[in-house]
Design a protein around this nucleic acid. Structure first.
Lengths: 199, 199
DNA sequence: GTCTATATTGAGATAGAC
DNA sequence: GTCTATCTCAATATAGAC
């Protein structure tokens, strides 16, 4: 059997640069501003060549998503296994770049079936990780899991991060910094409580 | 002074139908699917005529936003003044149509400056209403406002509603129904507590 | 108000030379 | 791999007849 053809380093690196450029455009002007011409221009090639690397624009979006989500899954697993799982989760969830990008992906997925399927899988997997970890974690934080079941806590953490970061990034005067500060203080208390209970 | 020219009823009604059609398209295929051709086709006129009613596409989006937000502000004021303010707020915030539409507006606003300014004003006004009401309300629900300040509670309610409804609408397997049910049970308890305290 | 016709711009994508 | 040239389609918007 022939060994699978391995693209030279230069090729893989250009792919990465194209993904970087795509993310940049999505963050600055939204996913709808992503076009073959614009992405190509950003890395100094011309438009048709983009199709050499990514046959369709959907392929490009999916590649951006998969690269990101791979990192997210990794980092979420690390966060949930860390010393202060809730704090680490929150820091990951409220990372402005990652969050803003996922918001754009969510919006883009709403009318790109291929993307939608991919986003759905990732959303499901990440949520499952979080919920599973919360099963044992809630008791350690002293949270009553009848009152606040894992699925509610997970949706709340993620939803709050999304909305606060979105308002922050867009510059809306809803005082998202204050909401974030208050959330961090709340996490401080929970982590302290858990640390105390564990010794 | 000449009286301002009043468009005939038929004209106003057509405008409304155009706004209806635009909302429909945004909900089904996302804001990026809104185009003069498509909106015009949906109401049975041809594209250039749309520009008679709404000179630019931005004008169309802004008109959709203002019609919606007018209702939202009204209904939010009613909700916050009602017998069970938190429940009424939650019901409003988790209304699938309204929420999905605002998600699209938020996304669209990210790269349409005119829209962004309008969305920003509305976000600020609505949040201010909520926070002001929470100032006195939290104590009635027995919530410690040092631990959960109004701005955090408001962002949380809105963020959770956004994320749960988005997942629900998109069909993602993150069990949003369970999260929503748990939130409603939580609200049940808070409203019961407040009712008891008030008699 | 509503139409046809059209100007302009930019999108995604392919063919084929080098 | 990278280019030029080009096809096709659809977008926003305007002009002007009816």
């Amino acid at each position: 059997m022939a060994a699978p053809r391995r693209p030279r380093a230069a090729t893989e690196e250009k792919k990465q640069r194209l993904l970087d450029a795509t993310e940049e455009i999505m963050l600055e002007d939204g996913y709808a501003a992503v076009s073959s011409r614009r992405v190509a221009a950003a890395v100094g090639i011309n438009a048709p060549l983009l199709h050499y690397y990514f046959p369709t624009i959907d392929d490009l979006f999916v590649a951006v998503l998969l690269r990101r989500s791979g990192r997210i899954v990794e980092r979420m697993a690390e966060a949930l296994a860390s010393d202060e799982p809730l704090r680490a989760w929150w820091e990951l969830a409220s990372d402005p770049r990652g969050t803003a990008l996922m918001v754009e992906m969510l919006a883009a997925a709403n009318h790109r079936p291929v993307l939608k399927a991919e986003v759905g899988e990732i959303a499901r997997d990440v949520r499952a990780m979080q919920v599973e970890r919360l099963e044992s974690l809630l008791a350690e934080y002293g949270v009553d899991r009848d009152e606040f079941p894992p699925v509610l806590v997970a949706a709340t953490v993620q939803g709050l991060a999304f909305s606060a970061v979105q308002d922050l990034a867009a510059g809306y005067d809803t005082n998202p910094e204050d909401a974030i500060k208050a959330m961090v203080r709340f996490i401080d208390r929970l982590e302290a409580k858990r640390a105390a209970a564990r010794r």
